[in-house]
Design a protein around this nucleic acid. Sequence first.
DNA 1: TTCATATTCAAGAGATTTATTGAACAAAGG
DNA 2: CCTTTGTTCAATAAATCTCTTGAATATGAA
Lengths: 226, 226
Amino acid sequence: MKTGTPRAKRRFKDDVYAALARVPAAIANPHRLELLELLGQRPRTVADVAGEAGLSIANASQHLQVLAKCGLVEVERHGTFAFYRTTSVTVYRLLQSLHEVANQHDRAIAEVFAKHLGDRDRGIEDWEKARALMRDPRVALLDARPAEEYAAGHLPKAINAPLEGLRSGKVSLPRSKRYIVYCRGPFCTFADDAVAILRERGFDATRLDLGPLEWQAAGRQLSNVG
Amino acid sequence: MKTGTPRAKRRFKDDVYAALARVPAAIANPHRLELLELLGQRPRTVADVAGEAGLSIANASQHLQVLAKCGLVEVERHGTFAFYRTTSVTVYRLLQSLHEVANQHDRAIAEVFAKHLGDRDRGIEDWEKARALMRDPRVALLDARPAEEYAAGHLPKAINAPLEGLRSGKVSLPRSKRYIVYCRGPFCTFADDAVAILRERGFDATRLDLGPLEWQAAGRQLSNVG
DNA sequence: TTCATATTCAAGAGATTTATTGAACAAAGG
DNA sequence: CCTTTGTTCAATAAATCTCTTGAATATGAA
């Protein structure tokens, strides 16, 4: 009965799928998902991400070990500090796909996004368009992430304009330019906030719905200068 | 202590990550992963996939409902039959990313693949190269999947050469041509088997490490003719 | 109507995952 | 040496997931 799948092949498949399933199992937890996105930006210590994600240190450490066990993150130890970071850009691609699927098919998450992002303007969504705009010398590129993340690598020619700097007025920008603002990526809200602040003050600002990881995924290098 | 993340933002993030995590939770099970890959090919009934994956029907039904609940698969009912299929190509991209990450970082799965695929020749891995070869009229494209899957959609100009057909000799091919063989995708082994059979019989055959879903992901249409 | 088929539902035992707790360890400074 | 700091380990109760079982539903055929 049925086309007899050879038993040996069954077993092989079982192994493959069991091994494969370990990765989604590792990211099937809200906290680990958050940690993974935090670590995608730059190496961070356990206490650091624990604080940002609202977890106890022991708990964060355990979650990080789960992520490390299937190769999603790796550790580098300096003294008593353990700096965790994602292992490669393929991890980011996985998260990206996850966002895509969730947004497309999960009504709940689409609602969550819709509710909190409101009817925000969609920004620029592809590199070609962004690069075309950037050729105009009257257009400047702003990086709305915190200074540390900017320092760890940013888009070429981007100027760091972290939110606190914008709010406090520490970052002062010429009013003659037009600004394109990016942050971590399409699902990060730093650039939205930055655009709102800038517009409030009469600047011409537009969001770029792409970030450094998309830039790398497109096969390009980040800059560390400036 | 710490840069005070506003409480409202915390809550919002919790919602987002909780919603996001439902998708990996759904695919964090070997059986569901297998079902998802089976359904990626064409719509199939519960009993059908249950048989192929070695599950009881009730169990398969439950797993399928988990997948459906977060929008990874959808049902279409015809009489008493329930045909399940993946909802969109974004689901395939997610699985693709998963394979990439797992192969790259999970030693266990890399070993599983290495062990079972042996040191198989890497096939053709990009469409440009494949298309360049296909321009030669002495080269023919073979689809090594079962006839049903071929009928549901295949690459333009591909000839169906299912494994049973090749083994039994029902599919006879001119020896004057050179063959490029594909199947479901880079992680499917049908094409490997087909290439092995063909070479054993003196044909010039090469594997194409891409399939119909990669073809669609590249923005192209499948053919139903032939 | 009755029967057979394809699927879904509901409940429960057994296994796994999660957050918490407090202890243990290891590096650096005094 | 002792103390502090950052991290990891180990144990546990609570929650969740998994598979099986047997019943329930719903369609189509006789």
